[in-house]
Design a binder for these strands. Structure first.
Lengths: 350, 350
DNA sequence: CTGAAAGCGCTTACAG
DNA sequence: CTGAAAGCGCTTACAG
C-alpha cells in the first residue's frame, strides 16, 4: 500500500529565510542583512532587488536568531512578574510599563504569581532562559537573593510594590506607612477614637508597613490601641466582609474602619451595606478602585498610583539598559488622600 | 595615558554556556544536552557530574538558541493582542489565557492595540518575528487578510471578542446580538416603551451587533424606533455621561436606557446620579463590571464571561498546536441576564 | 552509552 | 560598496 498525504490537509509552507531572499535577489546574505537592518552603503538597485524579494517571499526576520548572534545579545523583550494580571493594580501597572516599552519597540512577557513564592522563581527562570533584557518584579518571596546571578550577568532588575529582600536592587514603592498614617489621622480628625484595622496577610511586607503606619498614628494621637480592633490575614472580599460584620457586632465596636487593601475595602463595604451602617460607620480604604466615587456614600481612599509606579519602573529599567550603572535606587511614591464622603462620617453615640 | 577600567564598576560575568558545562563536567556537549532535556541513556555518574557543573556555573539554558535548532521550531511562547490591558475585560481574558498556557509551561507575550489598526499589525509582526507558537487576537482592523501568511506558515490563530474579517479562522465570541435583544426585552417586560440605545463607536463590529439586537427587540415588541433615542460613538465615560444627560433633558425622554458597553454604562450612571434620576430611570448595561452590585440601585447587566472566552481561546489554540487541523471553528458564548435592580425599575409618568 | 560534525537563521569581523 | 567564512548556543543525525 502506498501512502498518500491527506489531500484535505495543506502542508505548511515554511517561512522564507534570509538565505532564500539573498538567492532570489541575487545578492549575498550580508547584503540582505544590511537592507533589513537599515544599514547604509548598499546601492539603491540592490536595495530594491532585496525589497522585492522580501515582499515576494513575505520574509519575516527571525529576531531570536539575530539576537543570538548579535554582540549586544539584546532580545528587545522584558519580563514582568506581577501579582495577578486580573487585578486592576497589576494590570494598570503592566499597561504603564507597556507604554514605556512600546516607545522603544520592546515587547513584554508577563505572568502572575498569586502570592506563590515558587511561581515567582519559575517565572523568573522562564524569562531569563529566554534572555529577556530586563525584569520588573513585584516580589512575593521572602528572599530574592536567588536573583543575584541575573544581576551579575547584566540583566537589570527593578522591583515594584514591594522591596526585595536579601538583594540590593532598584525598586519603586508606595509610601505605605505614611499613607496608612494619613488614613488614621484623617479618621481621627473627624473625631474617631475607636478606629479598626482590617489587614491583608500579615506576612506581606506592604501589609506590615501599613499596619505600622496605623499603629504610629494611634500613638501620635494618643489613642489606645485595642487588640480587638485589629484583624490581620484578610485576603478576599468574603474574608473582609465576615471580619467587618464580626467587628461591628461586638461590644465596644469601632466607629471607623481602615481597610488596608482594595479587596478588603470592598468586603467592608459589602458588610456595611448588609448591616445598613454604610452612612454611620466611617471607612477609608488603602488603594483606590474603579467606581469608588459612584457608591453611596462615596468611598474615601488613600490612593496609590499604579500607572506612575509602572512608568517609573520601566523608565528606571531602560536607564539601566542604556548603561546607567550607578548605585541602586529606591523610589518612594507618595500616596494621596482622597476624601469622598465615607471617611468624613462623624462618630455617633451607639 | 593608560586606560583603566573604573574600579567601581564590576564587569558583567557572562552567562555560562553548554560548552562550558561540558568542559567542566568532562563530557561532550551532547551529553550535557541530554541531561538538560531529561533524555534517558546517560550513566548516573555522568548525570551527576553534569548536574554539579550546571549548579556551580549557575547554567541557564538558552531556550531561544535551542528553539532555533529544534526540529519543532517551537518557542513555547504565544502572543496575545488585546484591546487594552488596563481594561478589566482584556486583563481578565489575559489571565485566563495565562492559566491555560501555564499548564503547558508556555509563556505569554502581550500588548494593547487601543482600537488602532496599525498597532494591531505592528504587534502581530513583532510577535511573529519572535516566532511565537500561536496568536490570540482581539482584532480591531477592518481586514485580517494580512494574517493569511502566518496561518499558512503553521502559526495557529484564534480570534476573541470580534470575528476576523477577510480570513477564515477560529474565533470565540459573545452572542452580542442575543444579549442586546435580551436587555431590551427585559426592559420592555418591566413596562418600558421608550428605551434608549447608548452605543460604542459604530464601526466596532460588536457595537453593530448589539445595536442590531436592540433594533430587533424593538420590532419584536412592536415598539416604534425613535432616532432621537439612539446615540452612537460613545467611547468614554464622559462621552456617555454627556449623551445621557442630553437624552434625559429632552422632551419625550426615554424611561429606560440600554448601555452597550462598560464605560458607557458607568457614564450613564454618573449622569443619572447627577440628575438624581438613578432610582427613576431604568438601566441595563452590556458587560458586567466590578462593584455593579454595590451601587444604589444595584446595576442590572447582560454579563459576558471574559475568563471563559480566554480559556476557550487558549484551549482551542493548544488543540491546534497539538495537531488538530480540522476546519475553523466559531464558538458563540451565551450572555447572562443579571437582574440586580436598575433594570427592573418601572416606568413612571413624567 | 557517548560524542564529533554539521547546521538552525542570523551577524560579526574581515578582506577585497 | 560587497561578500565569504566563522560563529552565536544549541540540537540533529549519525557513527561508533
Amino acid at each position: 500500500m502506498t501512502e498518500h498525504a491527506d489531500p484535505a490537509i495543506t502542508p505548511y509552507r515554511p517561512r522564507a529565510t534570509l538565505r532564500e531572499v539573498a538567492a532570489m535577489a541575487g545578492v549575498s546574505m550580508k547584503t540582505v542583512s544590511r537592507v533589513v537592518n537599515g544599514e547604509a552603503g548598499v546601492t539603491p538597485q540592490k536595495v530594491d532587488a532585496v525589497r522585492v524579494a522580501i515582499s515576494r517571499l513575505d520574509y519575516r526576520p527571525n529576531v531570536s536568531a539575530s539576537a543570538l548572534r548579535r554582540s549586544s545579545g539584546r532580545t528587545a523583550a522584558i519580563g514582568t512578574v506581577l501579582e495577578d494580571l486580573a487585578n486592576p493594580f497589576s494590570s494598570v501597572l503592566l499597561r504603564a510599563v507597556e507604554d514605556v516599552a512600546n516607545e522603544r519597540r520592546v515587547l513584554i512577557l508577563t505572568g502572575s504569581v498569586d502570592e506563590d513564592q515558587q511561581r515567582e522563581r519559575t517565572l523568573v527562570r522562564a524569562f531569563t532562559e529566554r534572555r529577556v533584557d530586563g525584569l520588573i518584579i513585584a516580589p512575593v518571596g521572602e528572599d530574592q537573593g536567588y536573583l543575584r546571578a541575573e544581576m551579575e550577568a547584566g540583566t537589570p532588575l527593578v522591583f515594584v510594590d514591594r522591596q526585595p529582600q536579601g538583594l540590593l536592587a532598584d525598586c519603586v514603592l508606595s509610601d505605605n506607612e505614611a499613607g496608612a498614617r494619613d488614613a488614621v489621622h484623617h479618621l481621627a480628625d473627624a473625631g474617631h477614637r475607636r478606629i479598626a484595622y482590617l489587614g491583608d496577610l500579615a506576612l506581606i511586607p506592604t501589609a506590615q508597613q501599613r499596619f505600622a503606619g496605623y499603629q504610629r498614628a494611634l500613638l501620635e494621637r494618643g489613642l489606645a490601641p485595642d487588640p480587638a480592633h485589629v484583624v490581620h490575614d484578610l485576603h478576599t472580599v468574603d474574608d473582609a466582609a465576615r471580619a467587618t460584620a464580626a467587628l461591628l457586632g461586638a461590644a465596644d465596636a469601632p466607629t471607623a474602619l481602615f481597610a488596608s487593601q482594595n479587596l478588603v475595602t470592598i468586603g467592608a463595604i459589602t458588610a456595611l451595606q448588609e448591616l445598613g451602617l454604610e452612612h454611620r460607620v466611617a471607612l477609608i480604604g488603602f488603594d483606590d478602585f474603579p467606581l469608588a466615587d459612584l457608591l453611596q456614600p462615596r468611598v474615601s481612599v488613600i490612593a496609590q498610583d499604579p500607572a506612575a509606579m509602572g512608568r517609573a519602573a520601566a523608565e528606571l529599567l531602560f536607564q539601566r539598559l542604556d548603561g546607567d550603572r550607578g548605585r541602586s535606587r529606591r523610589l518612594l511614591l507618595p500616596t494621596t488622600t482622597v476624601p469622598r464622603g465615607s471617611g468624613e462620617i462623624a462618630p455617633e453615640a451607639r
